[in-house]
Design a protein around this nucleic acid. Structure first.
Lengths: 229, 229
DNA sequence: AGAAAATTTTAAGAAATTTATAAGATAATG
DNA sequence: CATTATCTTATAAATTTCTTAAAATTTTCT
């Protein structure tokens, strides 16, 4: 589990980091929120703990920026005790709010509670599933291999991710926007974005499914794509 | 949204109930936790607010019982301020913990935050709500499929949205204006706007319901359309 | 009841939108 | 530096949506 900690007070950030590392979490610690935004894409964060009062960009704004793209849980930790602040924080997209001074045990309990909800109760599809096998499609997320009718087909990383996500949700339509967000981990600007279509075409070509009515990756007009069960 | 409130202190339970009802939630209020367990199955709860100290069965035990079957969010509200209690509560399956005396606004913010996570970011919680089945009509918002008397019928995006909205409100009249606002997400200018009618006609054609008295999508003269339950 | 007005239905073609294809440009990788 | 992967752009194809006008229906008015 990767946890993001952002606090301009180094002592606090360090304390939180120690607690988290004790509990065996992987911590990414930042003393400034601007730095965070630049690196977020590469980090694959599962939960964030943010301070509210920070010099360059305050926690609320950072939270809003994050929420444009991600939906991992966000916990505010702050010295401000005013209730309105709590309400604000929770309203703009945070999941919990805890005031300094806090008991490390309580913070840990809240972290665990949020992660439990996010990871266990909240699964979009069965997370443990790493090998999917249906209709001649055998796709393995451990080895990143794809067999189609017992024949191995080489996929590029993005092609694999797209196909994997479609298979994980086989039977259901995936909106182009959702697909993009999931594979690219960034916001989707629909005006003039043709890249998914191109990758879909490549996938169809490799699966020799380029007829008028594709049998595998189907187009749902005005919505997105789906792969039939 | 159905919210369960359990507290043996009537004043507290009543106060919480008022707050929730103000915010337009549907409240099921209990003064004893034993009663809850007997009725839980029928209630279709989306979130629970539980007191910890209760005479017959304490909140922690109730929480555990609930978690055996359900995974809607649970918030503890309690007079106990000891930190260990918070940790316990969160550890056994609660999602949040707030101590009395509390600010109603904060409670509401936390309720909203939990519901947001549960409902908006969680596809599984909503899976079932995306399938409507009645009178030979089976419409599935996950797969974007429409079956009419067990026969699959292809719909265009707008046709699907219109039919979905009518089915979601089956039995009730939908004003043309409401229908338009919901599907097109923009303001409706009634002067000379025939587009909904055209789509309705297409839907009726596809359902072979073009007689003098349509059986499915009915015209409510001067108002709009409705689909009979 | 019969005429007039308002509203809805029907039909067909034009316009707009969305998706597919192709090929070259750019970026990333080893 | 060579190779591969990804993105961009332009154009074609497919499909959907809207517009328009006339016909039919229902309601309202006299």
């Amino acid at each position: 589990m990767n946890i993001l900690v952002v606090d301009d007070e180094k002592e606090i950030a360090d304390l939180i980091e120690i607690c988290l590392k004790n509990a065996n979490y992987n911590v990414y610690k930042y003393y400034s929120s601007i730095d965070v935004l630049n690196n977020l894409k590469t980090l694959n964060i599962d939960l964030a703990i943010l301070d509210v009062m920070m010099p360059d960009l305050d926690g609320f704004s950072l939270c809003q920026k994050i929420r444009e793209t991600y939906n991992f849980p966000i916990i505010f930790v702050t010295a401000k005790v005013e209730d309105l602040d709590k309400v604000n924080g929770l309203t703009i997209g945070a999941d919990d709010y805890i005031t300094k001074p806090f008991q490390p045990l309580e913070l840990m309990a809240r972290v665990k509670a949020q992660l439990r909800r996010y990871k266990n109760y909240n699964q979009i599809a069965n997370q443990d599933e790493n090998i999917i096998n249906f209709r001649g499609i055998l796709i393995n997320n451990n080895t990143h291999e794809f067999y189609f009718n017992d024949q191995k087909i080489e996929l590029t990383p993005i092609e694999f991710q797209i196909l994997w996500y479609l298979c994980l949700n086989r039977g259901n339509v995936i909106k182009t926007e959702d697909l993009f967000m999931n594979v690219w981990q960034e916001k989707y600007y629909e005006n003039d974005n043709n890249t998914i279509m191109v990758h879909i075409r490549h996938l169809r070509e490799k699966m020799q499914d380029t007829g008028k009515k594709p049998k595998y990756i189907k187009t749902i007009w005005g919505v997105g794509y789906k792969i039939e069960k």
